[in-house]
């Protein structure tokens, strides 16, 4: 009954749209369209019922992006993903893998059979994070003795002894590959850097630093990549560069709904994953907080060459 009623009202509204091309009534029900006051209240109602609450579990996706599976359906396997998540949590029970982002400065100690002291420590700024599941990787960059060095690490590598975050922060871009063509001072971090501990509960700071690039030749066409973190890119561009940049622009891509969809994991699937994994992650976070509170100041250790 209600269905037939609704259909008849909708028939009316559709007929209205077809007949009156420039009709400006915004109400969906024809009776309320007559009363202006009711229209106003309906507007208020619609604006009130709009903001739907986002599940707080979904906030985990920023701190732990590797728990989400590969968005490409050719490489999806629900059983393998479940097993991988269980293994990831087991590894996190063994060692504290802290929350970090691209732009944070980390110190990684690994078990190195080739080095003399059997361990090797490297400090650097995280320039990228990629991969999903147990194959999640991150790359650290540093300039040592005027030589730029980059090292890739597996997040869940069992030979990693310790991952220490010296400075937690985000940058204006997702990938910081332009640091390779930037002045070396933007990638130099001392190996003796002390960890900067933020007070509990502060949101992750976004470092708004804009990097200066060295003159050309560059490794990639940074001007075409819509990067927010570069300050002096325009001074190195020729006329031809600027023309080609305009020609290469794809302004329709930001409206491409299906492209976005194919790169993301939908909310329903994400909530399933996070509800599976959240309790354990919360426990680990609490344990980490306890250890930071208990930790007293220790004298800086001497670094091995």
């Amino acid at each position: 009954m209600a269905v037939t009623l609704r259909k008849s009202t909708e028939l009316f509204t559709v007929a209205k749209w077809l007949t009156r091309r420039d009709c400006r009534t915004l109400s969906s029900l024809p009776e309320k369209a007559k009363l202006a006051s009711l229209e106003v209240t309906e507007k208020a109602e619609t604006s009130r019922r709009r903001p739907k609450k986002v599940n707080p579990l979904l906030e985990n996706r920023h701190a732990y992006p590797e728990f989400l599976p590969d968005p490409n359906p050719k490489w999806r396997n629900s059983l393998r993903e479940k097993l991988e998540r269980a293994d990831m949590l087991k590894r996190r029970n063994q060692i504290d893998i802290p929350e970090f982002y691209v732009g944070s400065i980390l110190a990684v100690t690994i078990a190195d059979p080739h080095s003399q002291g059997k361990t090797n420590r490297f400090v650097g700024i995280c320039i990228e994070r990629k991969g999903c599941g147990l194959r999640a990787e991150f790359t650290l960059r540093n300039v040592v003795d005027h030589q730029g060095v980059e090292v890739r690490y597996d997040l869940y590598d069992p030979t990693i002894h310790k991952i220490q975050v010296l400075r937690v922060e985000k940058r204006l871009d997702d990938k910081l590959f332009y640091l390779r063509d930037a002045l070396p001072e933007y990638s130099t971090f001392s190996f003796d850097m002390d960890p900067e501990i933020l007070p509990e509960g502060t949101p992750v700071p976004i470092n708004p630093v804009k990097v200066e690039l060295k003159p050309k030749p560059w490794l990639e066409r940074w001007e075409r990549q819509e990067l927010q973190g570069i300050s002096n890119i325009e001074q190195y561009l020729t006329k031809k560069d600027k023309v080609r940049r305009e020609l290469r622009k794809t302004p329709w891509e930001k409206y491409d709904l299906m492209k976005q969809y194919r790169k993301t994991i939908p909310i329903e699937e994400q909530t399933d994953i996070w509800s599976e994994v959240n309790s354990q992650l919360q426990q680990l976070q609490l344990a980490r907080k306890k250890s930071t509170r208990k930790r007293t100041f220790s004298a800086p250790k001497t670094q091995l060459g």
Binding site: P65, K74, G131, C132, R135, Y261, P266, I267, E268
Partner: peptide, 19 residues
């Protein structure tokens, strides 16, 4: 091997989508 985008959230489409 790709990492899923986390900046935007999307609802699941209730139809078959080719890769």
């Amino acid at each position: 091997m790709n990492q899923a985008e986390v900046s935007k959230l999307v609802s699941k489409l209730r139809m078959n989508i080719k890769p």
